[in-house]
Amino acid sequence: MRKMLLKIKESSDLFVKTFILYVMGVLLVPTRRDDISLSSVCAVTDVADIPKKNWASYRFNELVKCICDPNADGKSIYMVACCWS
Score class of each variant (00 low, 15 high):
S11I: 00
Y58A: 09
C83I: 14
L5H: 07
N61D: 15
V16A: 07
K53D: 11
C42V: 10
S12T: 07
L38S: 14
C42P: 00
I50C: 01
M79I: 15
C66F: 03
S39A: 06
K53S: 07
V41W: 02
R59S: 05
Y22I: 09
I36R: 07
P70W: 01
L6E: 03
Y22G: 08
C82I: 05
G25Q: 06
S85A: 02
C83V: 13
N71P: 00
I8Y: 05
V41L: 15
N54V: 05
G25R: 13
P70Y: 00
D13L: 00
F15V: 13
I36D: 03
E62H: 08
V64F: 02
A72R: 08
A43M: 07
N71S: 13
K3S: 10
S39D: 11
D73G: 09
P51V: 13
K9V: 06
T18Y: 04
P70H: 04
L28P: 00
I8F: 02
M79C: 12
V16Y: 02
C66L: 02
A81F: 03
S39E: 10
W84S: 12
D13C: 01
S76R: 06
D46P: 04
V47E: 04
L14V: 02
P51K: 13
A72D: 14
W55K: 11
A48G: 06
S11H: 01
V23C: 12
R2P: 00
V16E: 05
N71H: 14
S57N: 12
C82G: 09
M1H: 05
K17V: 04
C83W: 01
L14N: 06
Y58R: 13
R2A: 04
A56Q: 11
I77T: 13
L27W: 13
W55T: 12
V47L: 05
A48F: 01
K3G: 05
I77W: 01
T45Q: 12
I77C: 09
Y78G: 09
L14F: 07
D13P: 00
P51M: 09
R2N: 04
L21M: 05
V29K: 04
L21G: 03
K52W: 02
P30T: 07
V26T: 14
D49Y: 01
D73H: 05
F19T: 14
C68V: 09
